[in-house]
Nucleic acid binder design. Structure first.
Length: 280
DNA sequence: ATACGCCCCTGGTGGC
DNA sequence: TGCCACCAGGGGCGTA
C-alpha cells in the first residue's frame, strides 16, 4: 500500500501533531502483526516524550526521550489515524495499537491485513535494526546518483521493474511509483537491468526523483486504504500516467492513432503498466 | 549471489 | 442474494 510518498506524508502528519507531546497511555490490542510486537512496548512508551520523527524507506521512526524509537511499517493496508482531544468517534475495526497523549491526542494504528508492524529500536542504533540494515539509498537524498544506480544494475539480468522493487537497490519504491518512473524514463519494465545504457540510468534517476517529489507534494495517492492521518485524501492518483490505466490512451503519445495505449502484464506476480510505443 | 514462487491476511469487486 | 475466484501501495523465506 503506502510507498515512500504516502509514508512521508503520514510521518509529516504525525510529526505536526505529536512532536513534544508526552504519551500518557498505550494499549496494544493485538501483537501478532507481521512481526510480533514487543510485549513491553506499551510500558516503554508510556510516560515518554516524543522528540523526533524521520522516515527511512517505507518505515517511520518516532524517537522518544529515554533512548528508544518506535518503528512503524504500514504494510499493504496500514493506516495511522490521529484524533484530536475530545473526539468520540467509534474506533475503527482492526485497530491494533492506540497511544493517547497527555494533551488528549489519540494515535491509532489500523491494519486489516496485518502485513504492517510496530517495533522498538534503540534510537542510537536505528540503522542497525534488522529491517533497516540492508536498505539501499534514499532516492531523494544525495547518495542516490546515476553512478550508484548504474553500479547496482550492472550485470543483473532481471527485469528493471523487479530490480527497482528490491529495497536494497533503492529504498522506498513500490509497484505504483516504479511504473510511473519507468514511464517517465521511457524504459520498458521488462528490460534487463544490466542492459540499460548510461543515459537511460540517468533518466531513471531523474524520473524517480521527480515522480516521488510530485507525489509527496500531492499528499500521496489514495486508492483503497490509504488516507492521511487526519483523514484527508492524497490526490496523486489523478496524476498517474500508466498505473491502473490499462487500455487508456497513453498520455504522452501525440497523435493517439499510432499509440495502442497503456498495457498491463504480470511480472513476478504483480501488475506492470507501460506504453509499448514510448517505453523500450 | 541471484531469482522465483509462495506465503502471510483481510476485504472489495465482478461474474455467474 | 450468494458464492467464488481474483485482485490489492509489501516483503520475508525457502528452494533451485
Amino acid at each position: 500500500m503506502p510507498e515512500l510518498p504516502e509514508v512521508e506524508t503520514v510521518m509529516r502528519g504525525m510529526a505536526g501533531r505529536l512532536l513534544g507531546q508526552v504519551i500518557a497511555h498505550a494499549e496494544l490490542r493485538r501483537a501478532d502483526l507481521r512481526r510480533a510486537v514487543p510485549p513491553d512496548l506499551a510500558r516503554v512508551v508510556t510516560g515518554a516524550r516524543v522528540i523526533g520523527f524521520r522516515r527511512r524507506a517505507k518505515y517511520i521512526l518516532m524517537r522518544l526521550a529515554g533512548g528508544q524509537s518506535v518503528l512503524w511499517h504500514l504494510g499493504m493496508s496500514g493506516r495511522i489515524v490521529l484524533s484530536p482531544p475530545g473526539t468520540n468517534a467509534p474506533e475503527p475495526a482492526h485497530c491494533h495499537l492506540v497511544l493517547v497523549t497527555e494533551a488528549g491526542w489519540r494515535v491509532g494504528f489500523i491494519d486489516p491485513r496485518r502485513f504492517g508492524l510496530v517495533d522498538l529500536v534503540p534510537s542510537a542504533a536505528e540503522e542497525a535494526h534488522p529491517l533497516l540494515a540492508g536498505l539501499g539509498p534514499e532516492p531523494l537524498e544525495d547518495g542516490f546518483t546515476p553512478a550508484r544506480l548504474a553500479a547496482s544494475l550492472a550485470l543483473r539480468r532481471s527485469p528493471i521493474k523487479t530490480v527497482l522493487l528490491d529495497q536494497r537497490v533503492v529504498a522506498g519504491l513500490g509497484n505504483i511509483y516504479v511504473a510511473e518512473a519507468l514511464f517517465r524514463a521511457r524504459l520498458h519494465p521488462a528490460r534487463p537491468a544490466g542492459e540499460i545504457p548510461r543515459g537511460g540510468v540517468a533518466r531513471l534517476v531523474a524520473a524517480i526523483r521527480e515522480t516521488l517529489g510530485e507525489a509527496i507534494a500531492a499528499g500521496g495517492s489514495s486508492l483503497r486504504d490509504y488516507v492521511r492521518p487526519e483523514g484527508e485524501l492524497g490526490y496523486f492518483q489523478h496524476a498517474w500516467r500508466v498505473y491502473g490505466r490499462a487500455g487508456a490512451p497513453c498520455p504522452d503519445c501525440p497523435g493517439a492513432a499510432r499509440c495502442a495505449g497503456v498495457r498491463r502484464f504480470v511480472q513476478a506476480g504483480r501488475s506492470s503498466f507501460y506504453c509499448p510505443r514510448r517505453q523500450r
